[in-house]
Write a protein that binds this DNA or RNA. Structure first.
Lengths: 301, 301
DNA sequence: TTTCGGGTATAGGGAATAGCTATAGCAGCT
DNA sequence: AGCTGCTATAGCTATTCCCTATACCCGAAA
């Protein structure tokens, strides 16, 4: 039993005539005759009574034809769903992003993405790099935004931008009037860090090797937001990426001081499985990043 | 898009692995790979993402697979309906019968048919021969029971039985004590006839050529039942077929007198379109007739 | 590094199928 | 008898489908 055969019997029932039904199906009359004979043979039932000057479905034939129409309608829906799904920019995209990027990049990015792909809503997972990597591998996410390096088998990356780190100190701090700070100066117990697992914590430790890394300490923040508040309240100093220091995330209770050249920075990238079926959705994200205009990002795309 | 391809994508979505899905479908792995690639190409959408160690449906793929299951289920119903309809003795049969047979034959025939084909209910049309012929030709009836001759193009007949005619007279009539009546004696104005169109009327006229045939006369009956009542009431005499004189259609107000040999009779037959798709249903009717045991019918089957 | 193993894609060939044209067969009409 | 309208059959070709063999890819093990 094939969909073609079902189309044939429906046409024959409608036209009541092999020749016209064949024409309706754009095949020759013998083709339709043979196909219907074969189907009747396969089903073991005579679906049509051939008389002189008429062809009419038998009792079973009538029921079979009716059901065949349902089957054909369902099959047609399959095609429709596929056609509608053809546009890779149509449909939800599952995006993962690290905690230290999400709140600062996404508001602008989503705005920019709406221009590029108006019908591609994002499901957003904010998490730490390691978890995002797992979810990307397990096909729970389509794309992630992380800091390089990010090497996973079968995963492609594309750099988006670099962002410099800057030092933040509370108002009244000794460094407040300084033009620049050397990375080595950021040291000791006074430095507030993110909790273990956050990649930005490791980036700061890498950039400022003099910073001690107390594992159980009140000087560990859950997020950049809490770090900023802790600094503002006078608990210590810290290092944040540029994007987290843009308006409106500044505060008149902290001062922002750049690093001395070459300032430490990190490279932010997009990552997706090599086999991901919607490469154009990835392209759209890149386009959206291109559309950003902020001093905080030194775009690479 | 074929039903086979739909089965393939459903299997692949279930198994998450080309090789196992192929095994599940009893085909080789390349066959399934190629078929799915072809379907994706036809639909213009990638339905599955092939990764290392996993194959998972894309967003569109998931929806397509789900719809494919519906389509396959509907197609399977087609097969089920056909299989259920395989039994030709299962399902309604549309039976036509002439007025002068129906009331006398059908009660017994239906009883007998229940033995032969318990799941074949009858839709019964009682009408005159000409109308039954039309309805048979137009596929509004499957089988008719009529008196021969009954020649229609594309229609087959099979004789069922002969039934003799007999004379009926009211009690006290001059013929009441006679052993037999010659057909030529049935003559004149005294004879009651069915209205024009009833084949039995013509058969009586054929058998008893001396009967005058008044077209507009109170001596015309709508049915054998009314003829019988009119005779009983003393309006005249008439001729009826044997089957209409069986118990319980007799009356103590009329006397039944046979014709002299050779008694006139008529031959009752079954007729159906040559192409009728349920020949076994016709056979079952013949069997049911064979099962009758009544002196009124001289069976021919 | 090499090899192995699990998995998918590709190549090449053979069988089955689906389509075509031409024509036979059949019944009703002229 | 011949014509017409219709369906079935025959014979052929192109396509499709499916198979085996093998290439390819990658991660894991040696």
């Amino acid at each position: 039993m094939t969909l073609t055969e079902l189309r044939y019997i429906v046409a024959l029932a409608q036209e009541g005539n092999f020749s016209r039904a064949a024409e309706h199906c754009s095949v020759s009359q013998p083709t339709l005759s043979v196909a219907i004979a074969r189907l009747e043979d396969e089903l073991g039932v005579q679906l049509f009574e051939r008389g002189k000057g008429f062809v009419s479905p038998s009792d079973v034939g009538r029921r079979v034809v009716e059901q065949a129409q349902h089957a054909l309608a369902e099959a047609e829906k399959v095609r429709q769903i596929a056609l509608r799904g053809r546009d890779q920019l149509d449909g939800t995209l599952r995006l993962g992003v690290i905690h230290t990027i999400g709140p600062y990049l996404l508001p602008q990015l989503i705005h920019s993405l709406k221009e590029v792909a108006p019908h591609m809503p994002l499901v957003i997972e904010e998490n730490m790099t390691a978890n995002l990597a797992d979810m990307l591998r397990d096909n729970e996410l389509d794309v992630v935004i992380i800091a390089l390096p990010f090497d996973l088998p079968g995963v492609l990356t594309r750099s988006l931008y670099d962002e410099s780190f800057k030092v933040i100190v509370p108002k009244g701090h000794a460094w407040e009037k300084r033009d620049a700070i050397a990375p080595e100066e950021v040291a000791g117990d006074e430095v507030l860090l993110l909790k273990a697992g956050n990649c930005f914590r490791d980036q700061v430790l890498g950039a400022c090797p003099q910073v001690s890394s107390p594992e159980t300490d009140i000087r560990l923040g859950h997020s950049i937001g809490t770090i900023r508040c802790m600094v503002a309240s006078g608990l210590g100093v810290s290092v944040l990426p540029d994007s987290a220091l843009q308006h409106p995330y500044t505060s008149d209770m902290i001062s922002i001081i750049p690093f001395a050249d070459p300032a430490p920075s990190r490279r932010i990238a997009l990552a997706w499985r090599a086999g991901f079926v919607r490469p154009k959705a990835v392209e759209a994200l890149l386009d959206a990043v291109r559309g950003l205009n902020s001093a905080a990002y030194r775009l690479l795309v």
